[in-house]
Amino acid sequence: MDAEGRKCFPFITAHTGCMETLDNTLDAVRMGIKLGADIVEDDVRVTKDGIPILAHDDIWTTAAGRSISISEMSFVELKNVEVAVDYAGKRGSMTFSTLEEMLRLIKPSGAIANLDLKVDEAVDAAAELVHRLGMLEQVFLSGCERERALLAQRRQPQLRKLLNADIRLFRTSPYELAVEQTCREALEASCFGINIYHEIVTPWFMERAHASGLPVYVWTVNETRLMERFADLGVASITARNVQALADLKQERAIEA
């Protein structure tokens, strides 16, 4: 809510790979910044020698057809390797970018970096960079289900983090119990909010999260009608590949107000 009690538009989070750019590339980061996203998301893994890089998966196929594993290679071995990309209908090739490169683009932009950690080793590796670059106020962690959230709280309590809601919990438990457990786990790990797949979220979920003081960040929403729905529900952030549509909706609502 703003000072006059009006509902604020959610933060716009640019999904890695927004607007047809390849996932986890610096082009995607630049596109998110260019379109005015409040938050830019990237996935983080760690090489064998502890260098955090932008990548969703551990196993990749090189452009030459060889299978490689990020976790089994040093950064020197990995940095010039060209890998094939075929994800969400986008095909191409790329070399890996580092988390440091991403953060150095984010820092002067004023945007916030959402670091979606894919492995436990990324907690300390990301924290070292965040501290070194003086970006505590410009970074938060996601990719943290209960155990990783607790690990991050023990090892790096200064870093803000979202609890990633466990989709499996909602598939195997009564909905009300799953919501209550999710809120409880977020509070136990000192998370500042909940990161959750959008199809799970209902008005009742929003009510319970709000009662627990937990903002709700939803992913990944690309259709305008769904963006409108979740903005009306009062979520704190919407993650989208189609950042332009979300930015256009924000502008339309600002004009209407």
Rank of each mutant, 00 (worst) to 15 (best):
A111H: 11
N164E: 13
A111N: 12
N164S: 11
S142I: 00
L136Y: 12
L133G: 07
N114C: 12
V139G: 09
I112F: 02
A122T: 02
R148V: 06
I112W: 02
L105H: 04
F140Q: 10
A127M: 07
F140P: 07
A122F: 00
D116Q: 06
D166M: 00
I106R: 04
R146A: 14
L133S: 09
R146I: 04
Q153P: 00
A149K: 02
A126S: 15
A111I: 11
R155E: 14
R154S: 15
G143Y: 03
L163Q: 07
A149S: 13
R160T: 07
A125R: 10
L117A: 06
A111K: 07
R148M: 15
M135P: 07
Q156W: 00
L151Q: 02
R146N: 08
L115C: 06
V119L: 00
A127F: 11
I112K: 05
A152H: 10
A122K: 01
G134H: 08
L151A: 09
D116G: 08
A165C: 09
E128Y: 08
A125P: 03
L115H: 05
R104K: 15
A113R: 02
A126M: 02
A152P: 10
N114H: 04
Q153C: 12
P108E: 04
E147K: 13
G134R: 06
P157K: 09
D124N: 12
A165K: 04
L117C: 12
K107Q: 15
E128F: 01
Q156R: 14
L129Y: 04
L151G: 01
L136G: 15
G110Y: 05
Q138D: 12
V139D: 05
A122P: 02
E145F: 02
G143L: 04
M135L: 15
P108F: 00
L105A: 08
F140E: 07
A165F: 06
E121K: 13
I106W: 01
F140V: 06
R146K: 15
V139W: 04
L141G: 06
